[in-house]
Design a binder for these strands. Structure first.
Length: 615
RNA sequence: GGGGGCGUAGCUCAGCUGGUUAGAGCGCUGGCCUGUCACGCCAGAGGUCGCGGGUUCGAGUCCCGUCGCUCCCGCCA
């Protein structure tokens, strides 16, 4: 017989000898027993999932992590009363004989449904009080109850399996990364504040009064330093901390990234490393949905903004916008023509097979558009070779054929028009695109569509101050290098900066990094930072760049969002074991909390409360 | 920081234009029931209607404030 350390916990395994030396708690798990076990004396431990009490005959569904087994006892047994008195969710250990069920009483909906355990001995291991939420129910409980009693919520099937899925996804990612030659490292949790980006979490220093550590917003600088240290290919399931407000798809405070960085690579090399990992993981855990095959489409930022109105397009949506400003310029439809004169653009949204929708469909959309603050949502229907609808008459043959060339509409389609300033047109067009596709159920729910968004602008103007600032990561390499920084209009410079998007959800951003100090100085100079300031803020990294830095780049897909997509969950709490509320509180552990005075004194910290309203 | 939704029994919710003793399902307690699998049947307990103030003869319901949960905007290099 194998030594205990080599015994695996697999369904069907008897992992401890049965008989006189029966294990104290269990010989099998609650998902194990099959018809082959009939006649054996076994021991199970688990939670009372549900009882069916017939007075003189009592069924107990005993549940553990692995499954449910029906146990049965009748009033002739001396321990009948003990089982009858135990509440749901009480942890018990039962010993008895496995018996086959009669044909009429087999339960084909559970794997153990052909047998049941006749209870001969019972021990209550952990009694349960009256429950604040019922584990054996699909009822949708309020967040407050669920989070305060998360340990109960986690017993329930849906969250329990989400968390297991999360674990399996992470294991699978680790395996795929390791097999590609990536090496996993840990980076510091207590580090320095990062000068750009989100709000930091600060940790006061006991040894250095008045000084603070910060929790890393991401291991960005560390992973670059790992490349400069010559490790070539790094990855980590990295905790990241940002003190920003939560959303349904954004935990307050903390989240995890698959953080990766590679040396001597181009943008394409990074894509080639990540694509098989993402495609593989989504195929493995995507519940049979189709997954974009590598190489994923690469969409330049500018194209994405024009076609989808956003840099995180949902490619499941077949509607692609195009610019038709010229088609409407100078027509008698004054709303558009005058708008165009004042600098507005017109975007077309061709919607396949929408021409036969009832009038009310178009009216409803128009009402919605006005409520969103747009002028409206004009449209033309193409039916039986004719252009129909309220504004169709403003376009002559020439203009209509031009429109067809641009949008590629076919007979039976409808084309919607958005006329706004370019930025608003993109924003509102994106909303309309999503809205229309949802109304007409054009979104394929059985697929994961990936794409890379590439060629992000290096700089943008701050809309309030009009000053030049980094539009993404200041450590990205500008396309064209130093030459571009010196010669081009900064707003025309692109960066080797890219996002990966799946079904309209941004999974990560990444970049080829700027590994040349002189380019770094220049890039920051354009954004208004003096060399001395750059040195003060990024001294450590800048220093490393000066002692032989390899070209390098990477990315960091969000683990939580990957699991959300795979689990089909809309809310990140459903895939997080111990989440906080939207107000960043842990209701179960009671965090954050007031700490003792001595605690604070040790850290040289004094609390000053914000003024209350009547002060 | 701002906007929306929700807050009634342990839990999920109903409660009309303000009007007698605030209801249901699940859970809980007690009773009956030997083949159920969301077992069934009978009975019972359980409520400061989030909290504070106001309007009114009368407030779960209307108004103001406040707290909690949530969704969104801002924020998230």
């Amino acid at each position: 017989m194998a030594s205990p350390s080599r015994i695996e916990l697999r369904p069907g395994n008897v992992f401890i000898g049965v008989g006189t030396d029966m294990h104290e708690y269990r010989t099998h798990r609650c998902g194990d027993l099959r018809i082959e076990h009939a006649g054996e004396k076994v021991r199970l431990s688990g939670w009372i999932h549900r009882k069916r009490d017939h007075g003189n005959l009592l069924f107990v569904d005993l549940r553990d992590h692995y499954g449910i087994t029906q146990c049965v006892v009748d009033s002739s047994s001396p321990i009948f009363g003990v089982v009858e008195d135990a509440r749901n969710e009480t942890v018990i250990c039962v010993t008895g004989k496995v018996v086959p069920r009669s044909d009429e009483t087999v339960n084909s909906s559970i794997p153990t449904g052909e047998v049941e355990l006749v209870i001969q001995e019972v021990e209550v291991l952990g009694p349960a009080e009256t429950l604040p939420l019922q584990v054996n129910s699909d009822e949708d409980y309020g967040e407050e109850t669920r989070l305060r009693f998360r340990f109960l919520d986690l017993r329930r099937d849906r969250v329990h399996s989400n968390i297991v899925l999360r674990s399996r996804v992470i294991s699978d990612i680790r395996r795929r990364m390791t097999e590609q030659g990536f090496v996993e490292f840990q980076t510091p949790i207590l580090t320095s504040t990062s000068p750009e980006g989100a709000r930091d979490f600060l940790v006061p220093s006991r040894l250095h009064p008045g000084q603070f550590y910060a929790l890393p917003q991401a291991p960005q600088q560390f992973k670059q330093l790992i490349m400069m240290a010559g490790f070539d290919r790094y990855f980590q399931i990295a905790p990241c901390f940002r003190d920003e407000d939560a959303r349904a798809d954004r935990s307050p405070g903390e989240f995890y990234q698959l953080d990766i960085e590679m040396s001597f690579v181009t943008q394409e090399d990074v894509f080639a490393a990540l694509e098989p990992v993402l495609n593989g993981v989504f195929n493995e855990f995507g519940d049979g949905k189709t997954v974009t095959a590598a190489p994923f489409p690469r969409i330049p930022y500018e194209d994405a903004m024009l076609k989808y109105g956003t840099d995180k397009p949902d490619l499941r949506n077949p509607i692609e916008m195009s610019d038709v400003t010229d088609v409407w310029r100078g027509t008698d439809f004054k709303i558009f023509a005058k708008g165009i004169e004042k600098g507005a653009v017109v975007r077309a949204l061709p919607v396949p097979s929408a021409a036969n929708q009832p009038r009310s469909f178009f009216d409803k959309l128009n009402d919605w558009a006005r409520k969103e603050g747009a002028g409206g949502l004009g449209y033309i229907l193409f039916q039986d070779g004719e252009a129909k609808g309220p504004i169709a008459r403003f376009l002559d043959e020439d203009r209509l054929s031009k429109l067809q060339n641009i949008t590629g509409f076919e007979d039976g389609d409808a084309v919607f028009f958005v006329c706004e300033r370019a930025e608003t047109a993109a924003e509102f067009g994106a909303l309309a695109r999503t809205r229309i596709a949802n109304e007409l159920e054009l979104i394929d729910q059985n697929t994961f569509k990936f794409c890379w968004i590439i060629d992000y602008p290096m700089y943008e103007l701050d809309p309030r101050t009009g000053t030049l600032e980094f539009s993404h990561n200041p450590f990205s390499m500008p396309q064209g290098g130093l030459e571009a920084l010196e010669a081009k209009d900064p707003l025309d410079i692109k960066a080797f900066q890219y996002d990966i998007v799946c079904n309209g959800i941004e999974l990560s951003s990444g970049a080829i990094r700027n590994h040349r100090p002189e380019i770094m100085y220049k890039a920051f100079e354009l954004a208004g930072y003096a060399a001395s300031e750059v040195e003060a803020r990024f001294g450590g990294m800048l220093n490393a760049l000066k002692f032989g830095a390899p070209p390098h780049g990477g990315s960091a897909p969000g683990i939580d969002r990957i699991v959300m997509l795979l689990a089909g969950e809309e809310n990140i709490r459903e895939v997080t074991m111990f989440p906080m509320t939207q107000q960043a509180q842990d209701l179960m552990m009671g965090a954050p909390a007031v700490v003792s005075k001595s605690h604070l004194e040790e850290l040289h910290v004094r609390v000053e409360m914000p003024p209350t309203k009547d002060e």
